[in-house]
Write a protein that binds this DNA or RNA. Structure first.
Length: 737
DNA sequence: GCTGATTGTCTTTTT
DNA sequence: GACAATCAGC
């Protein structure tokens, strides 16, 4: 059987175009992964390229793994030297080989967001900056945006002069960059930036890497940013480039993605061929028709209708819950029912706009006894206990002989020096830091040379150094797994978790040990250093393949995936489209939200469920309404269940209707009643202070509900005659019901 | 000077 | 409901 047998004409055309640059515009579900993988297999099978001279860049590790698997299915063992990776891992590989040209050691450290944050903390302290005025998240974003745009700290400083807010940010940026350089460490952005500088500034290196690839592929090309594009261009100097993307699925402009890049591709690569794949093989007819209608509302877009020959009359199910608590319960009930009717949990997924929305679902799933797995959110390697454990391992990693100062180890030391508690607080740490910076050594060396703190602390620190030194000797003798297990045992980490009954954290450590074990089984030569380097780019542990559980994830994380049955959860105005995003980005941001909805809806193959909830939202601080994205789906494709959705656009606070609102209070609903009572109990504990959600009686305005409270001023929603009033919470005319 | 409890603030999306 | 800053107590 030929590789091409399963392809339609357009797909074949794309696979067979091997004599020039190629742009594939591939709509959702049009088989784009199949086309890329087939093309790779075809190139190799036909002898057009050696496997190791074919490169494919994907967006996520997940996508890279899937592509590797599929290529392997087609080619067998020959496929192992095909280079398939994310752009970040590709850059790491390049840098490990050539970064010394820039004066950095090959085994440079990669900082994660936690490390970044602790550098910022130090910067804030030293530069006397208030966190309240400059949140860490915003600052990291600011730095990253500048770096990706190749704006250095000096440049930022210059353009900020005279503007104190901007100057402060530029100063932090400069501090941050200096700190990284000091530690010879790179953050995620640096991986790309350094690669770019190497390739653009050093002809020998550029030529070397260009010669390595005769065929290059870039997946999800609509989400490539300028810097990534520069790198791709530099790499493809001697080979043929094939890019695949769908402008309608651009969902990363907030991270610098530029749709223009795929739109103007032929300008940079004249004579390239463009193939459009517009037959959808994935979704039922109604789902696709709905998604098509939705995306047509975007003004800034090139019209492209997807069609399908799928014969299915399943409509999109829309459920509007009466209140916040009922929505996840409905989702869980529906999933349970589907499972009973014979649909496997693995074929169901719940997608949502923001990570925090998974909480409500989690609760409902636990109660309904539905197996589930949440992807993203707090990623495995970001969990405190995992970071602690890995920090201990990092401390053991031995590269002392080399002349680096290993200043990055300071971050590691700060993490574990008082976990478990050894009585080392801020003051003692200050002493150690002072000594270390005076002597130009890192914190660990300082601990070895000097003793600090009270007698008790001194003893604890000595023991700490002693254990680390002892285990450093054992690195070569034990497996990594055993090493870590014994070390954590000895420093009392397990005891600490056991005492505080942190079973889940213990489980996570076990999973980490298992993860390490797997690594060692698969990489016999791989030592501690290799392991640590490998995981620095992975945000998740080797996720077990699709087991029998429902998958929960953000829409961003679901990019490129597909499921038989998809629930899109909490599709409410403010949440999705996201209020904040629109406030910041205006119309273009709204269009990106709509593309995100398009991505979400087109993940579904057989059945699509969209849910939202009404009533008061604590997050949004207003009444929730069905998202405009639901209203943009033509009615004929929708089956309504649940509450009658209200008009999405008639309910800002000015026209707030208190009576409607009160009538929605879940007083008669058992489920809700219970939740409410729990709240009341909490209130009583807090000295009877007024809280959000409290029912109150006012001598003039009558019954109302507290919707917000700042200081002593409460915003209370009364009957519509009076609307929302701001009243002193301690005012005598006000009493709790 | 460290620890634990409490209060207040803030939650978009990711390699 | 996570996390940092703050405060009271040992």
């Amino acid at each position: 059987m030929s590789l091409l047998d399963n392809l339609n004409e357009n797909q074949k055309e794309a696979v067979l175009c091997t004599d020039r640059h190629l742009r594939i515009i591939a709509g959702a579900g049009s088989g784009k992964t199949r086309v890329i993988t087939t093309r790779i297999a075809y190139l190799i099978q036909e002898g057009l390229a050696y496997p190791n001279r074919v490169l494919a860049i994907t967006f996520t590790n997940k996508a890279a793994n899937e592509m590797k698997e599929r290529v392997q299915q087609m080619l067998g063992p020959m496929s192992t030297t095909v280079q398939i990776s994310t752009i970040h891992s590709f850059c790491v590989r390049l840098l490990r080989e050539d970064i010394h040209e820039l004066g950095y050691p090959r085994n440079f450290t990669i900082l994660d967001s936690d490390d970044q944050k602790s550098i910022l903390k130090k910067a804030y302290k030293e530069l006397q900056i208030d966190v309240k005025a400059y949140s860490y998240g915003a600052m990291i974003g600011y730095i990253s945006n500048n770096k990706t745009a190749l704006i250095t700290a000096e440049m930022a400083k210059k353009s900020a002069s005279g503007w104190s807010y901007e100057e402060t940010r530029a100063n932090v940026y400069a501090y941050y960059e200096a700190a990284l350089k000091d530690m010879m460490a790179l953050d995620f952005d640096d991986l790309l930036i350094f690669t770019y500088h190497l390739l653009s500034g050093n002809e020998a290196i550029r030529e070397k890497w260009q010669r390595r690839f005769s065929f290059l592929h870039v997946d999800e090309f609509q989400d490539v940013d300028a810097l990534q594009y520069h790198i791709v261009k530099l790499l493809s100097g001697k080979g043929l480039l094939c890019v695949v993307g769908d402008p309608d699925q651009t969902i990363y402009t907030w991270r610098g993605a530029q749709v223009d890049i795929i739109m103007n591709f032929e300008k940079d690569f004249p004579g390239c061929k463009t193939v459009v794949l517009n037959e959808n093989y994935r979704s039922a007819a109604a789902i696709l028709a709905g998604a098509n209608a939705l995306i047509k509302n975007n003004r800034n877009r090139i019209d492209k209708d997807l069609f399908t020959r799928n014969q299915s009359d399943a409509k999109i199910v829309h459920f509007s819950a009466m209140d916040e608590a009922n929505e996840p319960v409905w989702v869980a009930a529906r999933i349970k029912a589907m499972h009973t009717s014979g649909i496997a949990y693995r074929d169901m997924a719940v997608l949502y706009r923001s990570n925090f929305l998974s909480r409500g679902l989690e609760k409902a799933f636990l109660e309904a006894n539905i197996p589930y797995r949440i992807y993203g959110g707090i990623r495995f390697y970001d969990r405190a206990e995992i970071k602690d454990a890995l920090s201990y391992l990092r401390l053991l990693a031995a590269k002392n002989e080399i002349d680096e100062k290993e200043m990055w180890k300071n971050l590691v030391i700060q993490r574990v020096i008082n976990t478990p508690k050894r009585g080392v607080g801020a003051k003692t740490l200050e002493q150690i830091e002072a000594y270390a910076s005076l002597n130009q050594i890192n914190l660990y060396e300082a601990l070895k040379q000097e003793t600090f703190g009270t007698a008790k602390v001194k003893r604890a620190l000595c023991e700490f150094v002693d254990i680390i030194e002892r285990y450093r000797e054992l690195v070569k003798e034990y497996s990594i797994m055993t090493l870590l297990q014994k070390l954590l045992e000895e420093v009392g980490y397990f005891d600490m978790l056991q005492e505080s009954k942190e079973i889940e954290r213990l489980e996570n450590i076990k999973e980490l040990l298992h993860d390490i074990d797997q690594f060692e089984q698969n990489n016999h030569e791989g030592g501690l250093d290799e392991y640590l380097q490998m995981i620095s780019l992975y945000s998740d542990a080797n996720q077990q393949e699709r087991g029998e559980f429902v998958q929960l994830m953000t829409i961003h994380a679901a990019k490129g995936l597909e499921f038989d049955n998809v629930f899109v959860y909490n599709v409410c105005e403010g949440i999705f489209p996201n209020e904040r995003s629109i406030a910041e980005g205006g119309q273009p941001a709204l269009e990106e939200e709509r593309r995100l909805a398009y991505v979400a809806f087109t993940r579904a193959k057989k059945q699509l469920f969209i849910s939202d909830s009404q009533g008061y939202s604590y997050v949004l601080d207003k009444i929730k309404t069905t998202s405009r994205f639901v209203r943009e789906l033509p009615e004929e494709y929708i089956e309504e269940v649940g509450a009658k959705p209200r008009n999405a656009f008639s309910s800002d606070t000015d026209t707030f209707n208190g009576r409607d609102f009160l009538s929605q209070l879940p007083i008669n609903d058992n489920e809700q009643d219970r939740v409410y009572k729990e709240d009341t109990v909490k209130v009583k504990k807090k000295k009877d202070k007024l809280c959000k959600g409290d029912l109150v009686i006012h001598s003039v305005f009558g019954e109302g509900i507290v919707i917000a409270i700042t200081d002593d001023l409460a915003s209370i929603a009364f009957d519509k005659r009076y609307g929302i009033r701001k009243i002193m919470a301690s005012h005598p005319s006000l009493s709790k019901k």
